[in-house]
Design a protein around this nucleic acid. Sequence first.
DNA 1: ACCGGTTGCGGAACCGGTTGCATGAGCCTG
DNA 2: CAGGCTCATGCAACCGGTTCCGCAACCGGT
Lengths: 313, 313
Amino acid sequence: MPTLADVAALAGVSKATASRALGRPDLAAPETVARVRAAAEQLGFVPNRAATQLARGRTGVVAVVVPTLDNTFFTPIISGAQARAADSGMQLTIAVHSLEHSAQLAAVEQLAHQVDGFLLAAPRGSDEIVRAAASFKPTVLIDREIEGMTSAVADTATAFGALVSWFVAKGHERIVYIGGPAGSWQDRQRQAAIRAAAESSGATLTMLGPYPSTFAAGVEAAEAVVAARATAVVPYATSIGLGLMFVLLRRGIRDVVVSSERMIVDSLGLGDVPSIDVDGEKLGEVAMDQLMTLLGERREAPPTRRRLTVPIS
Amino acid sequence: MPTLADVAALAGVSKATASRALGRPDLAAPETVARVRAAAEQLGFVPNRAATQLARGRTGVVAVVVPTLDNTFFTPIISGAQARAADSGMQLTIAVHSLEHSAQLAAVEQLAHQVDGFLLAAPRGSDEIVRAAASFKPTVLIDREIEGMTSAVADTATAFGALVSWFVAKGHERIVYIGGPAGSWQDRQRQAAIRAAAESSGATLTMLGPYPSTFAAGVEAAEAVVAARATAVVPYATSIGLGLMFVLLRRGIRDVVVSSERMIVDSLGLGDVPSIDVDGEKLGEVAMDQLMTLLGERREAPPTRRRLTVPIS
DNA sequence: ACCGGTTGCGGAACCGGTTGCATGAGCCTG
DNA sequence: CAGGCTCATGCAACCGGTTCCGCAACCGGT
């Protein structure tokens, strides 16, 4: 493996100059930069990460902490974050805390000295716990907002509110919301938005939950949905909706409308059912961009909150 | 942040001794080891990864390369690998190549100098391409076997064969296999096993595919399943099965048995339907163990092939 | 022609561990 | 009791970049 010294020798300059030519071209003569670059190219020089990290005091790694990988909501976020991290020459590690609140904090603490920053996806627990987890390194929250912290969230609450309004406008009278995991910030937001949307109308709103975001939970919720004699159902997650739809179909119930993702609606030809699609990849990209900004600033920049609008179609 | 020098000073020894006391206790006096450990403990010493890597010439990172994160087959594998890697003090990075063959090789090449080894999950393409991808660093294949390479696979072929035999024994006469992605090694294995199982019986076997492992693919395949007048269906992936079952239910077809995972069968109360469950986590763990062995050996150890038996219930 | 100010570059220290080699103390054996 | 060994330890040289600092060449201005 060629080292910087090899490149420098080939270009006829010192290590110091070679380093500058590659890393801070503005500090070297254009002609020198060109020569060094050519030498690096010719040798197939790839800087040694560990050496760079050691010299700079940075690890070049960021971690994304997710509750689970089994939920298809998180995987696109990871992909998006991964792509953006790679663009900046950073590596991404993934920490899964298996839905346990305490494991979340432990995971962060354990990784804290091995990474430059964190992306915390859908953190559970109290604000204080999340603040504690974020106290180690620059951190961006995903799908949760806390006063004074940088965050990127999909504004699903607005979309869910619009969804309920749509159902109301279509004349639905008994609408059911199948709530998500206990302690979910998104769930609280959505509940509020849904209540507001249904309030002034004559429709009856039934709030179920909390449920985990799983197929099995949807199956389990079916009982209550039937009991509520629902005409329209808004599930917290696609997987919940799928489980529910399955049971309804098996029971021969075909006149309950269940909202879902565009992909499900289209492939099943469900017809006039509105769908909500969160662009998880975008969410991951945005969050990573914010983290990069955080890492770039010398002084602490004011926390930024990004909200992605979620289309309903 | 305390450094090794601080620990050494507090313990009253040199950096060298401190390093040995912590890393190779057998090379230092027991009493010294105790003192150094106490000092490290007291200071909350955490070795700087970059420095260790630089000195040892290893990165301490391994990469797992997966086609996609949207398939719930891969995520448990990642979790398992992650856990084992952490046990060995290694970090895991994830590379997603979005189902594109060429991107797979590119991803590996790009990461090659930043990691110590690779886990290639369900690699597509020819043996030569996979060999090329494995030529950079020690590599363990997951869910694919190639002559002369170390691999960990779930023996689903046997399970699928048993499944077909079970259907035959139950008197099913028209059995359909919905094939997986083109170029999938597992798919080839399963096809062979299924053909063998059906061969001597009077049952008609219809092979469909290739299909990607998605819900939509299951929906799409429904047409052909119905056309084949199947009484039992064996889908390549759970997601395919779900999509298929959905369509069948919507069409009011209730007498076709579709095999699935235990979880699905149980939560839906499908009754007497056999299920196949791959322990992805275990698979990831086993593969990571193999990789660790590979990285530990000075001389090249002979390649090992691990096959996990897959329960059918 | 002289001078303060830029600009480009090289020397060398440094980041924080690991490890080969040399040293000296202590022990066993003859 | 001397010679040879083992064992614990320290010194110092790395690993491969980054960056502070100082030097020299060169700039335009008076």
